[in-house]
Amino acid sequence: MTEEEVESLTTAWRTRWDRSPIAYQLRGWHADRWVRFHSLPESKRYADTEDEYEIILDRHHRVLDQLGAQEDLYVIATYFEDEEGRVSPDPRHLGAVPWLTIEPGDDSPFEVAQRLYVSMTSFDRQTLDPLLRGVADGEIFDVIIAPLDLRWLHHPYDGGADVIAPTTHDRDVLKNRHADWLSTHSAGL
């Protein structure tokens, strides 16, 4: 991404969301548009077989498709910097560039700075599957996938995905289509 594209994202994010892009906090942002889907049947958290990985990847792609994912998407992910300034895990394999830093105490419960990196990617299995599989295995975390206009947010995590749909109606359509992917917990967790 160019500096101009990163600046455009920053402006769009502040205009649309007006809060720090901390993925695991999404569910508290717009309860009327939020829904959580589990990645595997019976709320199983991690895949043990290739068939289970295929279920996880298929569910993410189906939701992204139904949200209206187009050719280009933002992928935002959090990385942590150690005392020597090394970022872990290395975001360069995703083609990501530094975007924002969230310091301890700035909406963050962590004692070290969170470095948010961003990349633009295409909506296809060959591009997204390695990322989604890394998330499913807990190797990449606090990821947000969003269209360039940021009208919806998809936060995959190891065990499922939180979604902020464009509207309450869109959220309800997703929930009805994938009712068997929802939690039985009363709060939808």
Rank of each mutant, 00 (worst) to 15 (best):
M1D: 14
T2W: 10
E3S: 15
E5H: 09
V6Y: 09
E7R: 14
E7Y: 10
T15K: 15
S20D: 09
P21R: 06
A23Y: 06
L26I: 01
L26W: 09
R27K: 15
R33D: 03
R33Q: 06
V35W: 00
R36H: 02
S39W: 00
P41A: 05
P41V: 00
E42N: 04
S43P: 07
S43L: 12
R45T: 11
T49K: 00
D51S: 03
I55P: 04
I56H: 05
G68I: 05
E71S: 08
Y74W: 10
E81W: 14
E84W: 13
R86T: 15
S88M: 14
P89A: 05
R92V: 15
H93L: 08
H93R: 13
G95V: 15
A96I: 09
W99F: 14
W99T: 11
T101M: 14
I102G: 03
G105V: 00
G105C: 02
D107M: 08
D107R: 14
D107T: 14
E111F: 11
E111K: 05
L116D: 14
T121L: 14
F123Y: 09
D124C: 06
D124F: 09
P130F: 05
L131N: 10
L132E: 07
L132C: 04
L132W: 10
L132K: 06
R133C: 04
G134F: 10
V135T: 02
V135K: 02
G138C: 01
G138R: 07
E139I: 08
F141T: 04
D142T: 04
V143G: 11
I144R: 04
I145H: 02
A146T: 08
A146Y: 02
P147I: 07
P147H: 01
W152Y: 08
P156I: 05
P156Y: 05
D162A: 01
V163T: 01
P166H: 07
P166I: 00
T167E: 08
H169Q: 15
D170C: 05
R171T: 01
R177Y: 09
D180V: 04
S183C: 07
T184R: 12
S186L: 11
